[in-house]
Design a binder for these strands. Structure first.
Lengths: 182, 182
DNA sequence: AGATTATATATCATAGTGATATATTTGTCA
DNA sequence: TGACAAATATATCACTATGATATATAATCT
């Protein structure tokens, strides 16, 4: 029933912490947020214009090293809008795992193909886990600096927990598939 | 780089097991597949027409209890198309968890609000876990009947593993947030 | 000097959602 | 047995978001 577009809320959320350019927002999406949310340029730039026209953000031109950029800040109205959205219960948590999909139809391709999908998945998750453990370390060291770090840490730890569970499952799944191969 | 639309592949995957109507496909999506993939009527019906026009599926009218329905079957070309897609490595596994998003920006709303988001998440996951454990039980009993059940079981066990990890995280996250509240 | 990578903004065709409309049949329960 | 709700079944549409691409400048590497 909520009328808030997610992309509006994510961008306002990021702007509630610091002023950012569209490019910087995309970088946050691809690093910090990518474990549970994504966004593309095709939604970021139009949304920024839209937020400005609705008075939820303001833009001002900046120059850094001769390069010009457009820096966006959240307004008081934007902060109110964000808080309203944060109050409302989460509407949807969903996974979209192509690996699982290929595994579900795995009988069509056979066990060895399924195992190679699991191995590729495992490699990817191991890499992500290494990154997240590094992030956790840094966040723990900065916990008392700023209250926001506590919440960042929480989401990083969610990723660590689930990725470890994934890795356990990978081993069990491979064992089960190998048993069938004999 | 792969040109296959996911929705084409999911539907062909389902049709590779049994003939289905659009309505039945939607039901599979909302029950068996919902833990790792979703699809709406708005993509299912147009895709079915499209698959027929490309020769990857055929439709035939059926009647059951006086009610008419359109039943779709996969063709040999459709099966080939599916197998090609299954061979290719998975391109994207992504989570889109609004709960995590609200938690990431949690400082704006405060600890008690964050805790109620976690509690709602926990309740939802507990319900899903109960369902998945029931499904696992049934699948285990039918393991020797049909090879496809092995792959279904694998994906159910993925869900069980991860949901248990989520529940562990919920407790730890709440503990951490309560500590800050004192 | 030349090439590559990073910064920065923007647009567009296409994919997919969520809501809604429509109609029939089955089940419930008073 | 009549009324009403729920399930079955198909379809469409406005809107949201992606992924690819285009363009241009600054920094870095060799």
């Amino acid at each position: 029933m909520a009328l808030e577009k997610k992309i509006d809320c994510v961008i306002l959320g990021l702007l509630s912490h610091e002023d950012l350019t569209g490019y910087e927002i995309k970088k946050r999406m691809d690093t910090t947020l990518r474990y549970f949310w994504g966004a593309s340029y095709g939604s970021i730039y139009p949304t920024l214009s839209d937020l400005v026209s609705r008075g939820l953000a303001v833009k001002h031109d900046g120059t850094e090293n001769g390069r010009t950029k457009i820096i966006y800040s959240i307004t008081e109205d934007g902060r109110l809008y964000l808080k309203e959205w944060l109050k409302a219960p989460a509407e949807k948590d969903e996974m979209r795992y192509e690996t699982l999909l290929k595994l579900f139809f795995g009988n069509e391709g056979g066990a060895s193909q399924a195992i190679s999908h699991i191995n590729a998945f495992k490699d990817k998750i191991e890499r992500e886990l290494t990154y997240l453990l590094g992030a956790e370390d840094i966040l723990k060291k900065n916990l008392d600096r700023d209250d926001t770090h506590k919440y960042y840490l929480l989401t990083a730890q969610f990723g660590i927990k689930t990725y470890r569970a994934y890795l356990e499952w990978c081993e069990e799944a491979k064992t089960m598939l190998c048993k069938g191969e004999e």
